[in-house]
């Protein structure tokens, strides 16, 4: 689904990613955690062809869709129009009906301009817009940032449901507890390098990760 090998990405002379390798297999749900400025969004933007790698390889199979950091909805357009554009590549697949069944929270919002919604509502729309592309892999950059716990709970529930139906997910999260809880495997990125990886339970049990990301005493 996603295979990243020895990926190096630079902004001018600054190296944001340094020989990063990472994999998301068919139907797998994988977390990528790490502090601010670690290079997580840089990885995302390289996956989606917005940044060019200086070295290394990105291979993807199947359809990818993104819930970008900061949500990036089309503010002047209605929720329904935002959803429609999620399927821009697929002229025949722009019926938004099925998305309202998957995400019933969006039904009362469908005619509202996306720019007027709360952060949680916007994140739900961003998720719906990404799902409109009927992806095989969903990449979510900062799902929970700035959202109320109840909203995060709802979003996580939807993710679990889609994953149960076979959707592969790469979840990028500041909230490591949530990420490790949702995903079976995880990577830890620090200063552009993968410093730890493995099954979530193992990572959560390792002293370094627990101290840095779960707020536990090492």
């Amino acid at each position: 689904m996603i295979e990243v090998e020895g990926l190096t990405v630079r902004y001018g002379v600054a190296t944001a990613l340094d020989e990063v390798s990472l994999e998301v297999r068919d139907g797998e749900m994988v977390a990528l955690i790490g502090p601010n400025g670690a290079g997580k969004s840089t990885l995302v933007n390289t996956l989606f062809g917005i940044l060019r790698p200086a070295a290394g390889r990105v291979t993807t199979t199947g359809r990818l869709a993104l819930v970008p950091e900061g949500r990036h909805l089309f503010a002047p357009l209605t929720v329904d129009d935002n959803l429609r554009l999620g399927a821009w590549r697929d002229r025949k697949g722009r019926d938004t009906g099925p998305i309202y069944e998957l995400l019933p929270e969006l039904v009362p919002l469908r005619k509202r301009p996306a720019g007027r919604l709360s952060g949680g509502q916007q994140q739900m729309v961003a998720l719906g817009r990404a799902l409109m592309a009927r992806p095989d892999v969903l990449v979510i950059d900062e799902m929970s940032l700035g959202l109320a716990p109840l909203v995060v709970e709802t979003l996580a529930g939807h993710l679990r449901d889609r994953h149960a139906e076979g959707l592969a997910v790469l979840l990028i999260e500041q909230n490591a507890r949530l990420a490790l809880d949702l995903c079976s495997r995880a990577y830890v990125l620090e200063a552009g390098r993968v410093v730890a990886e493995g099954p979530s339970a193992e990572l959560a049990g390792s002293a370094g990760v627990a101290a840095a990301y779960l707020g536990l005493e090492a």
């Binding site: 917005i50 990036h72 089309f74 002047p76 429609r84 554009l85 821009w88 590549r89 722009r94 592309a133």
Partner: peptide, 20 residues
């Protein structure tokens, strides 16, 4: 939809690229 895409491009070129 073409008109929506035109508006979307103006509103957020980054997001427009992401949806293709």
């Amino acid at each position: 939809d073409l008109g929506r895409a035109l508006t979307a491009t103006a509103a957020d070129p980054y997001a427009a690229r992401i949806v293709g």
